[in-house]
Design a protein around this nucleic acid. Structure first.
Lengths: 189, 189
DNA sequence: AAACCAATAGACAGACTTGTCTGTTTACTA
DNA sequence: TAGTAAACAGACAAGTCTGTCTATTGGTTT
């Protein structure tokens, strides 16, 4: 089944937004790249901002699906927690890695744009929720407070690793965060 | 002694760039805000990009000065390492906190702009260098490898805390990173 | 075959942008 | 007092951008 026009537009915009940034990607570029007419785009999306929201949605969705699958491919227990960070290694190596789309988008929109900001926070919230669930599932002996604390720490390490590996254009921040987590986990047992 | 015109321009641009972002701040806004003529600006800076470089320079410089002073105000030893993260609490609370200017600028310039990218990396390198020195000074018993590892971890926690406290608009990431560091330091002794 | 719908190309409006240039005014110094 | 250097206001060029609109084409359904 052929991809719908709408999805095709999102796909193209998504790649361009992520590669070049939101403001530096023009509507004209999006339509040229995806081979559609401008009126077609504007019949599917009321504005460029709406396209940005769709972009954030699919990226967040995709990430969650992928990271979930990756973690479930590991044996239960601590290794599933470490997997959250290990997941970043192939992600970083994929060539089109360009950091966190949330932070990048955040930097590009005006402060008062609550629409986009909300969307960004919602996406991160889902990721944080997933990590917390993962901790609960794999650290059942821990108290709820401990689980929350560990979840937040893991989330923080994840975000730090993404941001820094991008900025430094190197994978050592990922490895550093893995080290930090594993030593933390060893400590707990 | 009156601030030189050049410094005055940088000051104004710096505030605007940090608050609204580079692309969303127009030259006209900078001159209006600082009350100077356009020709004056362009007699001091060849382009907007040159102004961006100056902005990154002074921000990085200022940060390093402040964080250094803050750490030295603490007693020697582990507390000086924790201070790197504690430094972020007043920073976050200052009202005009808006995350890391490096990451924000990184997100706004085209990929091929090596000029700005280099400047950004250089700034971060200095910060990383400072942290490494701090570790060496306050963990003299450690081997060089351990010092480097701890330095990288502390740097990573710092960056994660900045990025996330900004994104989440909350200070818990800072506290989480402090927890992670202190438990790590306890482990070492 | 006729009606309808979705997509097409691309001109256009209107509002931005950076950077240049002209000509004037102010302030300090020789 | 004359001369120099710096800052002034603001018009302007040349380009960018988003979003609208017209007029046309192709395919599907009734």
């Amino acid at each position: 089944m052929k991809q719908s026009t709408r999805d095709h537009i999102i796909q193209t915009a998504s790649e361009l937004f992520y590669e070049k940034g939101y403001n530096l990607t023009g509507i004209n570029e999006i339509i040229a790249e995806s081979g559609i007419a401008k009126a077609t785009l504007y019949s599917h999306f009321r504005s460029k901002e709406e396209l940005l929201l769709a972009y954030l949605e699919v990226r967040d969705q995709e990430l969650l699906t992928n990271i979930r699958a990756f973690c479930e491919s590991k044996p239960q227990g601590d290794s599933r927690l470490v997997a959250v960070l290990e997941f970043l290694i192939p992600f970083f190596n994929r060539g089109d890695f360009n950091g966190c789309w949330c932070l990048r988008s955040m930097a590009e929109i005006p402060r008062e744009n609550e629409n986009v900001r909300k969307k960004i926070r919602a996406g991160k919230q889902k990721l944080r929720g997933f990590i917390l669930e993962l901790v609960k599932d794999n650290k059942p002996a821990m108290s709820a407070e401990q689980q929350t604390a560990l979840g937040n720490q893991l989330y923080l390490l994840y975000e730090g690793a993404v941001g820094e590996s991008h900025l430094q254009d190197a994978s050592w921040p990922i490895e550093t965060s893995i080290d930090l987590l594993t030593s933390k986990l060893r400590q707990g047992t």
